[in-house]
Amino acid sequence: MCEEIKIYVADLAAYNNGKLYGVWINACLDLDEIQEQINIMLSNSPEDCAEEYAIHDYEGFNGYELSEYTGIKTAHEIACFIAEYPDLAGALLCHFGGSIEEARQAIEDNYVGCYKSLADYAEELTDSIDQIPDNIAYYIDYERMGRDMELSGDIYTIATAYDEIHIFWSH
């Protein structure tokens, strides 16, 4: 997965002179390796005195959009987080406005699981707390229970696909 998380680092001297010159780099590499590839790219620049660079494109960030002002270190940290949690990290980062710390805390401390719906989670939670007699179970509105949990602020959800809702405790 990590090989698919890449950044395109462009030589700004070449770019400012109308030339597209840069290199795709695996964003999960060690920071020193990333910087070494950037330095090699700059030293082979078609422009004299190439010193500045910027991330002009990226792939594999799972819905999270890097800003043109994102630094190499931040891009690397985000890429490593996405590689660690490929199914959810991009959506979590979007939810938390790019805060890796908040996204990491959510997934490590508050993650409940992935469900088809809030109703499925409410039913599982209810069944784990108490055994509901069959003659009463038909009267329980699990859809409303799940919606009420979310509206009350006890939980929040992140949908990543059809019938795929990730549920987190809000505390």
Rank of each mutant, 00 (worst) to 15 (best):
E123W: 06
E65Q: 14
D87Y: 15
E36M: 14
G18H: 04
E101W: 06
V23H: 01
N39S: 06
A14E: 00
E123D: 13
N16W: 12
N44M: 01
I40R: 08
C49L: 13
G60N: 10
N135S: 12
L93K: 09
L93C: 13
Y8I: 10
A54S: 08
L125P: 08
G63H: 13
K19E: 06
I129S: 14
E33F: 06
Y53T: 01
D127I: 00
Y121E: 01
D134V: 12
N16M: 10
A13M: 08
E47A: 07
A54W: 03
E47V: 13
S45M: 03
L66S: 09
D48W: 02
E77V: 05
E33M: 13
Q35I: 05
L29K: 11
N26L: 13
D87F: 08
K116E: 14
I7R: 01
I55Q: 00
H95R: 14
G113V: 10
Y111T: 08
Q37N: 10
N39R: 03
G63T: 07
E65A: 14
D32K: 15
E108L: 11
L29E: 11
T74Q: 08
I107S: 09
I107Q: 11
E124R: 14
E51V: 09
E102D: 05
I7P: 03
C28E: 12
A106D: 06
N17R: 10
Y69R: 10
Y121A: 07
A89M: 11
I100S: 03
E124I: 15
L42I: 02
H95C: 12
A27T: 13
W24C: 03
C49H: 05
D48Y: 00
Y58R: 01
Y64I: 09
G98W: 09
Y69E: 11
H95Q: 08
D57C: 02
Y58V: 02
G113T: 02
Y121L: 12
Y53I: 03
A13F: 05
G22L: 00
S128N: 12
D30G: 14
S99M: 14
C28H: 10
R104E: 13
D11K: 01
I132C: 08
I82P: 02
G90Q: 03
L92F: 09
N44W: 04
D134W: 06
D57P: 04
L88G: 00
F61A: 11
H76G: 06
N39G: 04
Y53K: 07
Y8E: 01
D30I: 11
C28P: 02
P46K: 10
K19V: 11
A75L: 04
N39H: 01
